[in-house]
Every structure is written in C-alpha cells, then in structure tokens.
Amino acid sequence: MMKLDGVTVFVAVAEAGSISEAARRIGLAKSVVSERLAELERVLGAKLVQRTTRKLALTEDGFAFLGHARTILREVEEASAQLSERRGSLSGPLRIAGPVGFGVAHLGRALSAFLAAHPGIDLSLDLDDRFVDVAADGYDAVIRHGAIRDNRLIARRLCATRRVLVAAPGYLAAHGTPRSLDELEQASAVHYTNRNSDWRFTAADGARVIRPRAKLRVNNGLVMRDAVLAGIGIAMLPSFFVHEKLADGRLVRIDIGIEPEGAELYIAYPPNRSASAKLTVLIEWLRRSFGDPPYWEAGLPARAERKS
C-alpha cells in the first residue's frame, strides 16, 4: 500500500533537487528520506529518481507521477484545512518565502504573533532576495516588495510603501545636500543590485529617471542602509528600512521637491493552489499587522510636492 509519507518525501525530493535539501526542508534525517523514497518505488514498481554522484534527476516515470503526487498532497491538505475550519481552528504546514531585509526587520515579528494566535500551524519561512519559483520550489506563497514578475501567480496586495532618499548627516556636511535632480545625479550612490541602477521619480508630467554614479552595489537593503549610515553615499531605500534611523537623526531624508517612485508589498501564490484557509487568514493578519499606510511610515514627513 502506498503511504502518504512516501509521497511527501518524493515531492520534496523532486522540488529540492536533492535528498539532503529535501531532508532539510521537511525536517527529517537524510537516511529516513532515502528509505521512504525507496519504499515508494518498491510499492509502485517503478524507478522515480535517478541518482548519480553529482546530481539527482527524475526518471520518465518520476515526471509522470509527480503531478499526481502533488494533487494527492494538495487534496489531503485541503481536506485537513476544511476539517480544521469546521472545528474553528487552523492546523498543518504552511511554507512561505520572503525577502531577507524585510523579513528580518518586520516579517519575523508579525509571523511570531500569528503563530502564537494559531499554534496548530507549522510554518516554514525561507528568506531569500532572489525571485523564487513559488510552485516549483514548493512554497505555498511568496512575499515580495515591488512588481510580481510572474504573471502565473495570483497577487494579493498587503500595503503600499514609499521609497525615500536618505544620507548620513556627515556625508551631507562634507558633500552638500542635493536640491534638484541634476544635483542628485552627481552624488555618490549606494545601489541595490537586484534592481537596475535607475532612480525613478513621479512627476506631474510623467516619470523622471536619473542614474547616479554607484559607489557601492549590494543585494541587501540592510547592508545598503548600513553603508549609508557609514557615510558612503546616498541611497533610495524603502521606508521600512530607514524609519527608525530617520526618527533618531542618524539618517536624513533628502527632499528635492519630487517624490521617489513608490512600491507595494504583495503576497502571491500559484493559481492551482487556491488560497487555503491558513493562507487567507495569514494574508488578513499581515494586512492588519502592517496597516495601510503601514506603521513604519507613521513618522515620515508628508510627500513632497510634485514638480514638472
């Protein structure tokens, strides 16, 4: 008889690409994962995975079975979720991904409170600034700041956020405070490498774009903030990274009379995984936790007047 834990292991191995990574994701010993996978292959009478010294790949039978295996697990999870709803409780696994900086600064505390309110949920959170493939990597949902590039996903808005130009007081004392786009373009900049180096602004006559010289490029917003605190240059950063430093005066907001282009915070999930009760409750929890406008923008000055 085919066992559900064998199906779970097979899907984890297929999505992770290795037995060791699958074992890490589902919290089992590597030997247990190997044993359950071997048992499933014996029950099915088919080789699902081809193992070599360098990599692991699905066989033709493995590819054929994978879709069915995912359907089995999804239906079991949905059935369990429906029973939990009937009992007035939520339970079971929930796996999400999010950006590193935002996860450290804000997401962690919101999720800790969520788990305290729903102790039956087993949450896995992977923080990664790369744009993960939600379905292929086995996530229920992904949290992103900015546009969702994958049009196969269903995106649910959490809140709008602002980007602000910031610098350390020491940098501005040494180099002057830019008062226009032309002056800003001559400044030393700290750029985020996962976006292009353009700084976009919203003007009455449309978007305005400048390309300041990069003093530093880095793929993490918290490292960018620390570089700005050290006086390396000016950065355009989401308000959720800098609100506390602006409040205590360690960073200064630069106002050139035109507002940096904003962004929105989303949670997205594959259309073939309709939002489960757990995910629906999580989405509403995050919306209430962050607020709209979000709590980290409570002390920010009013938006700059737009100039053409």
Rank of each mutant, 00 (worst) to 15 (best):
G221I: 00
A203I: 02
N219R: 05
N219L: 03
T161D: 15
N194M: 15
V164A: 00
L165C: 03
L222R: 13
L181T: 07
T193C: 10
R211A: 13
H145S: 13
R213Q: 14
N151C: 05
H175N: 13
T193E: 13
H145F: 13
R157G: 08
A147H: 14
R149T: 07
R149M: 07
Q186M: 07
D182Y: 08
I210T: 11
A203F: 05
E183G: 10
L153W: 13
D150I: 01
N194R: 15
T193W: 09
F201S: 01
G221W: 03
A214S: 12
R163C: 01
A227P: 00
G170T: 06
T193F: 11
R156F: 04
V164K: 00
L216A: 05
A203W: 02
L222V: 09
R217T: 03
D198W: 14
A189N: 12
R217H: 07
L153H: 04
R208G: 03
S197H: 15
A187I: 11
V218N: 07
V218W: 10
L222W: 14
E183M: 04
N196Y: 14
A214R: 11
R149N: 09
A173W: 04
L172W: 08
G146L: 03
V166Y: 02
G176L: 05
V223T: 10
R213W: 11
T161I: 09
V223A: 09
N220T: 06
S180K: 02
V209R: 11
R149A: 13
A173F: 06
N219K: 04
D205K: 00
N194S: 14
D226E: 12
L184K: 02
R225T: 05
L229Y: 08
N194W: 14
V166N: 03
F201Y: 08
R179I: 09
R157S: 11
A168M: 08
D226S: 12
H191P: 11
A204C: 12
K215R: 14
G170M: 00
R163D: 01
L165H: 02
A204R: 14
R152W: 09
L184I: 06
H175W: 07
S188I: 11
R163L: 01
T161P: 00
L153T: 06
D150W: 03
I154H: 09
A187V: 15
